[in-house]
Design a binder for these strands. Structure first.
Length: 566
RNA sequence: GCAUCUAUAGCUCAGUUGGAUAGAGCGCUCCCCUCCUAAGGGAGAGGCCACAGGUUCGAUUCCUGUUAGGUGCACCA
């Protein structure tokens, strides 16, 4: 497709003595009546010692319009460019039609991206606090892949630590009281809370728990079997949710996987001479790089800590995958931890890998009543949220479209869209307050709104026998403001996807899809499509088809599936 | 105490890397289905962009300070 921005930049560069590529200075005016692209001349004022409007005026004289840029105007200190709308629609529609996967790209070819996301703890419930990491990771995974990157999804399970020694002790004591085949997570959770309390009361039990963990590490068959059982039961439960959300991973290597790979980390760091001793522990001091808390590599009792295992993971991943980027989608609570291990990683792996480590941190999810706590039991479980939302979706369907055939299937898609969109639509950096009213809202800027818009395009397309051929289209009929808005958005799609990967921010895609759905709704309300004069109908149908495709692929990249009707 | 993030309409949030008149959704007041799905569209009310300085031709955006809140600060993950 024609790169309008670049074309304009070229023209400006040709007309001036500016060495630097001016593409990055070109902006989009706030209102399309002021043109499609603008070049602000303010920064030139100093160098040229002239007022910005004068510079703009002189520039205008030197730049001629052509097939691509039809009009150039001076307004204040801005030079405004108007592009050929017919060309825009021709380009956009042709590209969308001919390309089965519009927006897909190969810019990522040859690069490998690891994404570490979801990472629930074994034997603990999967609550809405895990939703953000799971859905952000899933969306980034899909977008990177769509742009041609070799993408590896990793679920770094929390499957290691003294807590499992406690679990084993709990099972030894009360295993016969619990039927773990039914509702295993809650039973395990119950057992965990119970044994935790007992450990606090009775030092001997805690001692026994530590011993169990030691045995587990040493490969004691009883402990290992039990640990596997807890893990299997948990994964089975987690995959109920993953399957519904259509989330999957290429690797389930969790903490335990790296437990026997920490020795080499210590060895390398020791060779590099960065290990020191402090209060009995082995640490890497990070004072010099402005981090006042050292990174502990070995505890005073000689055993390793999660930081060591995370470092072992970095080493392993660098060797196994030769990654270009490794993203950690983890809440900002762990900002310091990642700062520390990324710093230490510089001593451990090549610069290429150390530079590729990125913490994609996101805000916490809290309830209106305050922070969630598994221990206090005031968590909203993902399963409950999903069931509740799908139920609400079904209610609305029964009310609005009682004759719809596959209500359950549609309700599932709509409910999940509401959840996914709600989770991904706000900037990851901020905290989110979970509110049932917002979660169950299906109007306005929501997942269902995007689906609804899609269904309307679908319904228009169903009414015609054959899609018109782009070569027979008179693109000049799409010159109204509504068509123009839609076309410009479709034109931007690939750029939006690139931005998502540059900022590792799915909300950019979410906002974009809302903008596109809105633009199409405006178009749809103002323009009749079927039953218009043939050339108008054909052009509008083709535009509708393109919107249909972009909405479907865009939503698909977020993990949202489209119903045919709703 | 130190570090770090956040502060934009009553509520939830956008704001294209410093640009033109600060936008949207929810809620509120109206209007639009004999017409392709009204889960939609349109109009209106609603703002000291937390506060005070600074840099700049220009600041919601960058810097400093203040205030309020979140989070983290050594052997848990």
């Amino acid at each position: 497709m024609i790169d309008f921005k670049k074309h304009i930049a070229q023209k400006i560069n040709n007309a001036t003595q500016i060495d630097e590529d001016v593409t990055k200075y070109i902006e989009i005016p706030p209102d399309s009546s002021m043109g499609d692209y603008a070049f602000p001349c303010f920064s030139l004022a100093k160098v040229m010692r002239k007022a910005p409007p004068v510079i703009a005026g002189e520039l205008k004289e030197k730049i001629e319009s052509d097939d691509i840029v039809t009009k150039i105007e001076v307004k204040g200190g801005y030079l405004n460019f108007y592009i050929n709308k017919e060309l825009l629609s021709k380009e956009v529609l042709n590209e969308t039609i001919k390309n089965n996967e519009y927006g897909k790209s190969n810019i990522g070819n040859g690069k490998t991206i690891l994404i570490d996301y979801s990472a629930p703890n074994i034997a603990k419930p999967f609550h809405i606090g895990h939703l953000r990491t799971t859905l952000i990771g899933n969306c980034l995974y899909k977008v990177y892949k769509y742009l041609g990157y070799n993408t590896v999804g990793i679920n770094h399970l929390g499957d290691y630590g003294t807590q499992f020694g406690k679990m084993i002790e709990g099972y030894k004591l009360w295993g016969n009281e619990y039927d773990l085949e039914v509702d295993p997570i809650n039973k395990m959770m119950d057992m965990y809370v119970r044994i935790n309390n007992l450990c606090k009361e009775d030092e001997k039990v805690l001692e026994q728990a530590r011993e169990n963990f030691r045995l587990l590490e040493a490969g004691d068959p009883y402990c290992v079997d039990l640990w596997n059982k807890f893990k299997d039961l948990s994964l089975k439960e987690f995959y109920k949710i993953y399957d519904i959300l259509d989330v999957d991973f290429d690797s389930l290597n969790g903490e335990a996987f790296y437990a026997d790979k920490t020795d080499e980390v210590v060895e390398i760091l020791d060779k590099r001479g960065v290990l020191t001793e402090s209060e009995g522990a082995t640490i890497v001091d990070l004072e010099d790089v402005g981090i006042s808390t050292p990174c502990i590599i070995k505890k005073a009792n000689g055993s390793t800590i999660y930081a060591t295992r995370d470092l072992a993971a970095i080493l392993y991943r660098a060797r196994t995958y030769d990654f270009d980027k490794c993203l950690y989608v983890v809440a900002y609570e762990q900002n310091l931890h990642f700062k520390q291990i990324f710093e230490v990683a510089k001593y451990l792996v090549d610069e290429k890998y150390a530079k590729g480590l990125i913490h994609v941190s996101y805000g916490m999810v809290a309830l209106p009543t305050g922070k969630m706590s598994t221990r206090l039991g005031n968590v909203v479980k993902i399963e409950d949220l999903i069931n509740e939302t799908i139920g609400k979706a079904k209610e609305i369907i029964s009310e609005k479209n009682p004759d719809l055939e596959n209500k359950d299937e549609v309700a599932k898609k709509v409910g999940l869209a509401a959840i996914i969109f709600n989770t991904l639509s706000t900037t990851a950096n901020k905290d989110q307050i979970f509110d049932w009213n917002t979660a169950l809202n299906f109007q306005g800027e929501t997942g269902p709104y995007i689906q609804y818009t899609y269904v309307r395009t679908k319904s228009v397309l169903d009414k015609i026998d054959e899609l018109p051929k782009p070569k027979d289209i008179d693109f000049s009929v799409l010159s109204d403001i509504h068509s123009e808005n839609v076309l410009k958005l479709i034109y931007n799609f690939e750029d939006v996807l690139v931005q998502v990967t540059e900022k590792n921010e799915p909300a950019i895609l979410a906002r974009y899809l809302i903008d596109l759905a809105k633009a199409y709704s405006g178009f749809y309300n103002e323009n009749k499509i079927i039953g218009e004069e043939k050339k108008v109908q054909d052009a509008r149908i083709l535009l509708t088809y393109c919107v249909n495709k972009v909405l479907e692929t865009g939503a698909g990249l977020m993990g949202i599936k489209m119903p045919e009707k709703m």
